[in-house]
């Protein structure tokens, strides 16, 4: 039984425009790590907002844990079950003190004070920001702010977190911090949906879904999807650098036994080739 299931979802922001989502169906299992790829305007952010009832499909249905997102009585239950972390860390933090910001979600849910305290401490520890709990957000780095934003979602104890380009505005250090946090959440059994432009992040997922013009273009294991270099290129999508290098070397006549996804694999395969 899939945890999230979208069936034939269609959506447009206004009537003249083409459908931003055009008959999208997808299923996400509990505990899965899914990366959602596609270039700008392909509908992936819209899809993210479908998953926590921020947007409702005009056609089709989205079920989260067997709850229909269009049922208004369930809206807050769905939103606390599927958290959404956005791109800009600055614009997600509400309060002037870290721990009070993290408490914002559970406070909205009407959780008991001692229970909020426990959840806030646990969430901050999970993202490694516990020592900063009494600090002000503007004194933190981008990566730290984004981790606090993740803790704010985590404090609602969701079983799934959707990340909408969480690393797009961060420097390489911040990106690494946030990806580590995301991976450790996945290890704890939280379902992850990661929307990203960085292919080396998508490689970490169990499954990659590629969207184009409001439709799902292809999906599968990262290794299988990224092996289709020409298909991805045709849709103006990147592949990981290591894959790109291998692709070009294969084009130049070098024989690779497999497609590498990261630098280490690439080095190993090159050593094989060079004997």
């Amino acid at each position: 039984m899939s945890f999230i299931s979208a069936e034939n979802v269609k959506f447009s922001y206004d009537e003249q425009n083409r459908n931003v989502l055009d008959d999208v169906s997808l299923k996400i299992k509990k505990g899965e790590f899914v990366a959602l790829l596609g270039h700008n305007g392909c509908g992936k952010s819209t899809m993210a907002k479908m998953l926590n009832a921020m947007l409702l499909p005009e056609w089709g249905v989205v079920y989260v844990d067997n709850m229909d997102t269009s049922d208004e009585k369930l809206t807050y239950e769905i939103r606390s079950n599927v958290g959404l972390v956005l791109q800009n860390p600055d614009n997600q933090l509400v309060a002037g003190v870290i721990e009070e910001d993290v408490a914002f979600g559970p406070e909205n849910l009407g959780v008991e004070p001692q229970e909020i305290r426990r959840r806030v401490d646990d969430a901050l520890k999970a993202v490694g920001m516990y020592e900063y709990r009494t600090h002000a957000p503007h004194k933190l780095s981008g990566g730290q702010k984004q981790r606090v934003a993740i803790a704010g979602i985590l404090a609602m104890e969701p079983s799934c977190i959707v990340f909408d380009e969480p690393t797009a505005m961060l420097d390489p250090n911040g990106r690494e911090e946030v990806m580590k946090a995301i991976q450790s959440l996945h290890d704890k059994g939280i379902t992850i949906v990661l929307i990203t432009h960085y292919m080396n992040e998508a490689v970490l997922a169990d499954r990659v879904i590629v969207m184009d013009k409001g439709r799902i273009l292809t999906q599968g294991k990262p290794r299988d999807v990224f092996s289709e270099v020409p298909v991805l290129k045709r849709h103006r999508l990147d592949v990981p650098q290591a894959t790109e290098l291998a692709y070009r070397l294969i084009g130049a006549g070098v024989r690779f036994t497999d497609m590498p996804l990261n630098a280490e694999e690439c080095v190993k395969l090159l050593e094989e080739v060079l004997g």
Binding site: N91, N108, L109
Partner: peptide, 12 residues
């Protein structure tokens, strides 16, 4: 964006 983020965190 803040309004969206607040709604995502069940603010009502």
């Amino acid at each position: 964006e803040l309004a969206v983020a607040m709604e995502c965190r069940c603010y009502h």
